[in-house]
């Protein structure tokens, strides 16, 4: 369960270009829920996801994840929660060029320091499941867009997170690939994972996978 209470986020506080990205967001997300945040760019949905995902701290307000208050956590603890609780899928995949598919997938597990062999096995299983098991030694820049997306998904899953955060996951995918992605998401849903998606793609927010659509504008929830 995720609870947000009066979350605000301001940038450039006190300067002329002061900007309020979020203005008092209150929200409750139950476990296993699939939520899509919709709204034009600049509406604050990405900022909200990054705050829920412990990537940045709100300027004010409080967040509880499974009962634990995370708002005032210093970065090292926030990072710990982030890598153990969340899996991130970014709009531009954000894979690291020049290293293999396997290494990219394993990256979030490095700071955990588990056994190398076990981490590697876990990565291979995930990549197999996502249908790119044959390309694990290839460098990511030689993969197609759809394949890169799957590597990004495998990477998001490596630490077995309970919450998946996806920012515009279909932005660079054609309809067929977007459909496949949604299928993968529905698989996650069956496993009981919570999924939070920011998207303005109708394919996504009209999908049957989605439990709830939250519309945002100018840093506030409008619906």
């Amino acid at each position: 369960m995720i609870q947000l209470s009066a979350i605000t986020k301001s940038f450039h506080t006190g300067k002329t270009n002061e900007f309020h990205a979020l203005k008092g967001i209150n929200l409750e997300v139950s476990l296993g829920e699939v939520i899509v945040f919709v709204g034009p760019s600049g509406s604050g949905k990405t900022t909200l996801l990054s705050i829920i995902g412990c990537m940045s701290r709100p300027t004010s307000g409080r967040i509880w994840i499974s009962g634990q208050e995370i708002t005032s956590l210093p970065e090292r603890f926030a990072a710990r929660i982030r890598r153990e609780t969340f899996g991130f899928i970014f709009q531009n995949y954000n894979l690291i060029k020049g290293i293999s598919v396997l290494e990219n997938t394993m990256l979030p597990a490095y700071p955990l320091g588990g056994k190398y062999r076990l981490t590697k096995e876990r990565a291979i299983t995930l990549l197999d499941k996502l249908g790119i098991g044959s390309k694990i030694q290839e460098h990511v820049e030689y993969l197609s867009g759809g394949e890169q997306q799957r590597v990004a998904i495998a990477r998001a899953l490596i630490n077995a997170p309970s919450i998946i955060i996806a920012d515009e996951p279909t932005a660079h995918l054609d309809t067929r690939l977007a459909g496949q992605l949604l299928e993968i998401f529905s698989g996650f849903r069956k496993e009981g994972k919570t999924i939070l998606i920011a998207s303005h793609d109708a394919l996504v927010f009209e999908s049957a996978v989605v439990d709830r659509v939250i519309a945002m504008r100018d840093g506030s929830v409008v619906k």
């Binding site: 301001s10 940038f11 450039h12 506080t13 701290r57 709100p58 300027t59 004010s60 708002t71 005032s72 210093p74 970065e75």
Partner: peptide
């Protein structure tokens, strides 16, 4: 420590 202001975030860094 209670604040999430940009200054506090910078100090923590």
């Amino acid at each position: 420590i209670q604040s999430g202001s940009e200054l506090q975030l910078l100090l923590e860094k």
